[in-house]
Every structure is written in structure tokens, then in C-alpha cells.
Amino acid sequence: MREKILTFIEKNSRIDLKQLAIVLGVDEAIVMNELEKMEEEPVICGYHTIIDWDKVGIEKVTAMIEVRVTPQRGMGFDKVAERIYNYPEVNSVYLISGGFDLMVTLEGKTLREVSQFVSEKLSALDSVLSTKTNFILKKYKDHGTVIAEPTKDERIQMIP
């Protein structure tokens, strides 16, 4: 049941409960219960909106920053990661295998704002050894959604 609910709302988080219950062929109360539980646990960690800010004419700068850090005794990378993800301007923090340790994504209004954050806050942390900032030039696809013109139904409107 959980898997079915999650698979569905991962792509349609705005569906109302009643409709979701019908679509899944189960009682509304069961769906509501599961959702509440999953929000508490939390399996469901939030409901967000994918926005193409370019189209509203609002400029944003997103950067993916590769960070090399020194892990701390007894806590590994978790403590450093926490230190970084607590900054509200940080969008996501992943521990990564390969040539560096943490992948930090960041959103700012201007290039300057982002670079300021990197030089003054991120690099200034004791455990941060080095950073490499990659600015995103264009978003093609985000969260499984292609950021492009809406697709048109090209099928012939009536066929037997």
C-alpha cells in the first residue's frame, strides 16, 4: 500500500485524498492514515513545487559545490554535513563517493551572493579542505520533470 501511495504522490502531490483513494481502489480512511503516519515518521519529508524561475523573469543562480572535508573523529562526515546544511541558503547536501566528499547545492540571487557564501562561510569552516564551485547554466530536467514547453496532445481528437 505504502509503495503504491508513494509512487503515485511522488508525481501528483496535489491530488485530493478522496480521488487518490478511488484511484488506488481502497478506503479513504486507510489512505489518510498511511499518509499521516508517513508524514510523521517522516517517510514523506515535504511537498514541493518545481518552478521554472526563468519563465517568470526572476533570476536565480544555482551552484553545485564539490567540497572536500576532514571527517571528524567518532562522527565521520555527519557533523560537517550538519554544519553546512543548517545554512538556509543551502538546498541540498549529499555525501558522495569519488574525488570529493560532499556535494552542496546552493541557490542565490546573484553570482556574487553565491561566491560570497562559498568564500566567507563554507571555506571558512575548519573541516573544509577545499571547494570547487560549478554554476548551473541551464536546467533541462529537474526531479524527473523536463523543464520545457508544455507538451501538446498531438493525437487525432476522435478515432474509433
Binding site: D153, R155, I156, Q157, M158, I159, P160
Partner: peptide, 16 residues
């Protein structure tokens, strides 16, 4: 159907 504005067709016999 093709002329309709804001029309919805449920007349198609092929997958979406």
C-alpha cells in the same frame, strides 16, 4: 472537435 476551444476530447482510441 478540432475547432473547439477549451474542449476536452475523450474520443481517442490510442494510449496517451
Amino acid at each position: 472537435v478540432n475547432e473547439m476551444k477549451d474542449g476536452i476530447s475523450l474520443g481517442v482510441g490510442e494510449p496517451d
